[in-house]
Design a protein around this nucleic acid. Sequence first.
DNA 1: CAGTAAATTGGTAGCGCTGCCAAAAAAACC
DNA 2: GGTTTTTTTGGCAGCGCTACCAATTTACTG
Lengths: 347, 347
Amino acid sequence: MPPLRQRPEPGSKVTMEFKHQATVTLAEVAEAAGVGESTVSRVLRNHGSFSGRTRDRVMAAVERLGYVPNRIAGTLASTGSRLVAFVIPSLSNIVFPDLLRGASAILEENRYQAVFSVTDYDPQKEEALAAAMLAWRPAAVMLAGYEHTGGTVKMLRASGCRIVEMLDVDGDALDLAVGFSNRAAGRESAAFLLKRGYRRIGYVGHDLNRDTRAGKRFSSFCETLGAHDAPLADREILAGASSVENGRLGLERLLARTPDLDAVYFSNDDMALGGYFHCLARGISIPSELAIFGYNGLDIGRVTPQPLSTIRTPRVATGQVAAQLVVTNAPPQVVDLGFELIEGATA
Amino acid sequence: MPPLRQRPEPGSKVTMEFKHQATVTLAEVAEAAGVGESTVSRVLRNHGSFSGRTRDRVMAAVERLGYVPNRIAGTLASTGSRLVAFVIPSLSNIVFPDLLRGASAILEENRYQAVFSVTDYDPQKEEALAAAMLAWRPAAVMLAGYEHTGGTVKMLRASGCRIVEMLDVDGDALDLAVGFSNRAAGRESAAFLLKRGYRRIGYVGHDLNRDTRAGKRFSSFCETLGAHDAPLADREILAGASSVENGRLGLERLLARTPDLDAVYFSNDDMALGGYFHCLARGISIPSELAIFGYNGLDIGRVTPQPLSTIRTPRVATGQVAAQLVVTNAPPQVVDLGFELIEGATA
DNA sequence: CAGTAAATTGGTAGCGCTGCCAAAAAAACC
DNA sequence: GGTTTTTTTGGCAGCGCTACCAATTTACTG
């Protein structure tokens, strides 16, 4: 943690008084409005029937007292919780903010609240965090992919809340699943490169044990190459997370070892951009000397001097659909949103 | 004849059972362990005293029944809520995921839960979302910057929960504030460009009415230029959000109108990267023909063939410190984490 | 206008847990 | 052994709200 540089501060007495704020309760509103508690509750939730006159009186009292309903109490008293728990691997990988962005818009419209925690791609941590999440009795738990510990699965199943597995459709869903096929993405990427005539193809990727979806793409990529008699020429796998820096470093190492490659497949667009920059810096001309192919379809890839050849994934839409399924309480199903291969100019 | 055991009819009954999953309660654990409810509560929270033997019995019962504590009930019964509410402008701008990332690590360690919603840079929406958040009685509300509606301020003040304003220190904090000075950033950026000898300086920015922090940077940037007899030569302000695409477009327009600029200041690194790509594509040599200066210190800016000249802001640290102040219940204060000017190679 | 249906209301029992208090058990003391 | 002290326990009243039901008022029949 960085050192704290702080300004002069007021005394700590203030903090105490600050904490013991008198909270207005529904009973007080009822009293002030001269109606019963259940009437106030009905008016505020716009549920059940009440006359226009009482509604006005209640709303006036709410306004006057500055009443803020207590959802904790409300949730405990009723059945469903209108909390949606996201247990995601990372916030550094743009995929997840995009997912949250799509979902949060839909959730907010429906008065749901998003809670999240970050597993750092660690299944054990996922289990612990999922348990912590279930303590809030969420309406749904949103996870990435299909790979969970037995404990996680058991716990989620027992919880009775909706489970949404996002970003993958290659496997057996626990309940709901929304995403696209990573295997198909790997396959089509390989097919595209082969169709363009590349035969000496390499791979630069980040830690595959952690990001199992990148692992799925890679393995079907390799299978497809193998099936066309152009097996993967070389690979460079970096320990850290997917990043531009690792992409550049990875390509540098790969080319040092195997200089005669004619194309490189990257685990992600940020890795691919790193490779792109490496080529720019070294004067390697793209795609004539070396072709580059990414994955994700980041906006930045469209604006580079040569648009990046990649696969665009519907990340925001995945979040939206996932949220939509939850708020509509849809029956168990797998939704494959597909992806789009962007030909670009780097392959 | 064998006795007829009536099957449950397929229909509503089954659905009911399905929804209302037999949730194990603390009382059931107490019963199973042969102890009182408060004993179970004490053991689980590791609070108060109990013998090793009862702890084992309780834990065994918890394990056996698969008990998951209900935090909703716990929070209602006790005082503090261990929920921290983030009300952030956006998830597209990398700043906010970084902020969340820093905070969530600290919060998770301390068994706090992060809740978030996205205002889309709209103060009215911020007010509505803050109200919705307060309904969960969070321990703290984390916001961006100092610019809030009167209603928001009033509500937050009345709530009695901690308030953290992040990413800015130029103004009067409501309670806690963590960040850095955007005014100083604008000033230092201008000073740097002037020191390097640039005199015909332009600006490319995104919507400043919404992103008030970018507005603060811009205005002190201009003031500094003016104070050194090199007033801003031209500006191009795009309606949309900060993005690589808008940066490229903005620079193109700016140069079309005012071709003799020798340096351009961008509202953000992603905008600056767009400008950088534009120069690459048009063969404008950097920095001899045109210098580029950004803001934020994105990782990608370090990996481009020429490292981007920019100001690196402690975004993750801001989240960390903000969370730390909340979990330690620190007295009201403003923490200025400062920033770092990266000379780079583009200016 | 009685007589019934429909629309409004209020009372109250929990939701599952924690905090307080007093009771019971164990340990320490003279 | 008889106390006093300390440690462990259990009981139970809420936390603030919603769901259910019954009571009340109002609207609508013929």
